[in-house]
């Protein structure tokens, strides 16, 4: 009786399962469900948003079901390392190799252990922000203050893009005022809320924020404890100038350009300025079928050729930046080398 019942269950289940199973065509390297794991566990952050915009476009283009899963760094690396058939891919930004360079646990060497996929977009919004009533009104003021021996505290998130910006600023102080770089100190903290709070409490003179999150604060009257001002945008003006002219909120693109190189200078080596674009790209399993890689490259290049995804990205203040996987790999490798040199110089 029991056995019969079990058999019945299985048969019924199997029938339904087959009927509802993926009707993928065998000639397409990727069909049915595509799982995109991201290196962030937040569904409110910029990684999720960029991934979601791209996933939506891929779903429509390929007639598949692309789904973004915010599993976080270690789980994302684990998932993409485990599945090689192209049904799971990872999507993340420069943190993926910076974490490894900074020696964080749980970060493989993406250039060795994974395969670099295409780059998709840039979030140009990262910014260094100060309190409006502070006497440090520009990033040059910050560098000068350090040169004069004043201590300037910068609130950053440790172990990532944020730390590279801080390293670059410290490096610039050292080049301009040798021996004074120790006056720039970091306050290591987490969320945007915590960084803002440090500024409100005047426990930091400068915080790492973003155009998206802090623009409204820059429009508050100076007597408001919460009022802030932009000091520096690490994205170069060539990137920001691609944004919509409206910029963000009531701060237009031209206003934002005032905080970017070459209009402000955070020197890299005494000659050129340091600039950095936070770029989003795909990461694949090392053994993923080259056909599947080419298939996704082709799909994305078609999507970007159509031009609709650019509008969506720009509306959310992201800059479209498509490069097929081969180009992306060469480019990111070079970028990682530069970051490595900078990290070595400031440690």
């Amino acid at each position: 009786m029991k056995a019969r019942l079990l058999g019945m269950c299985l048969a019924l289940g199997a029938a339904v399962g087959v009927a509802a199973g993926p009707a993928g065509a065998a000639d397409k390297p990727i069909s049915g469900n595509l799982r995109i794991v991201i290196g962030s566990s937040s569904t409110g952050g910029d990684t999720y948003q960029n991934a979601a915009i791209v996933a939506e476009a891929l779903s429509k283009k390929l007639g598949i079901n692309a789904k973004v899963d915010a599993v976080g760094v270690s789980a994302a690396f684990a998932a993409v390392t485990r599945v090689s058939d192209g049904s799971t891919v990872m999507f993340f930004h420069d943190q993926s190799y910076l974490g490894h360079l900074l020696g964080l646990k749980g970060y493989p060497d993406i250039f060795k252990d994974l395969r670099i996929g295409p780059t998709v977009s840039i979030n140009p919004g990262d910014a260094f922000v100060g309190a409006k009533d502070s006497k440090l009104k520009t990033i040059e003021d910050v560098i000068q203050a350090c040169g004069k021996g004043e201590r300037v505290r910068v609130a950053i998130q440790p172990g990532g893009v944020s730390e590279v910006y801080y390293g670059a600023l410290k490096n610039a102080v050292g080049i301009r005022f040798p021996g004074k770089e120790g006056n720039l100190v970091s306050v290591k903290t987490g969320s945007q809320g915590d960084k803002n709070q440090l500024l409100f409490d005047r426990q930091a003179e400068v915080i790492h924020g973003s155009v998206q999150a802090n623009e409204q604060y820059t429009r508050l009257p100076a007597e408001d404890q919460k009022a802030m001002r932009f000091l520096w945008l690490p994205s170069p003006s060539s990137t920001i100038s691609q944004a919509n002219p409206e910029g963000m909120g009531a701060t237009g693109r031209d206003e934002l350009l005032k905080f970017t190189s070459p209009n402000v200078h955070v020197t890299l080596d005494g000659k050129a300025d340091f600039t950095f674009d936070k770029e989003f790209f795909f990461l694949y399993n090392k053994k993923m079928d080259p056909k599947a890689v080419a298939y996704l490259d082709k799909a994305l290049s078609d999507i970007f050729a159509e031009g609709k995804v650019q509008v969506t990205l720009k509306k959310a203040f992201f800059i479209p930046n498509f490069h097929p996987s081969k180009e992306a790999a060469v480019y990111l490798k070079k970028k990682a080398e530069q970051s490595k040199a900078l990290i070595a110089a400031t440690r």
């Binding site: 029991k2 019942l5 079990l6 269950c9 399962g17 199973g21 049915g32 469900n33 799982r35 058939d85």
Partner: peptide
Amino acid sequence: FAPNTGLSFLFTSIVFMAALSLLYVHGP
């Protein structure tokens, strides 16, 4: 065998639920 489809969940759950119920039921 069928990644990201949930089919593994579907089939194993059917078997599991039946088995656990049969384990618990008194006087079938």
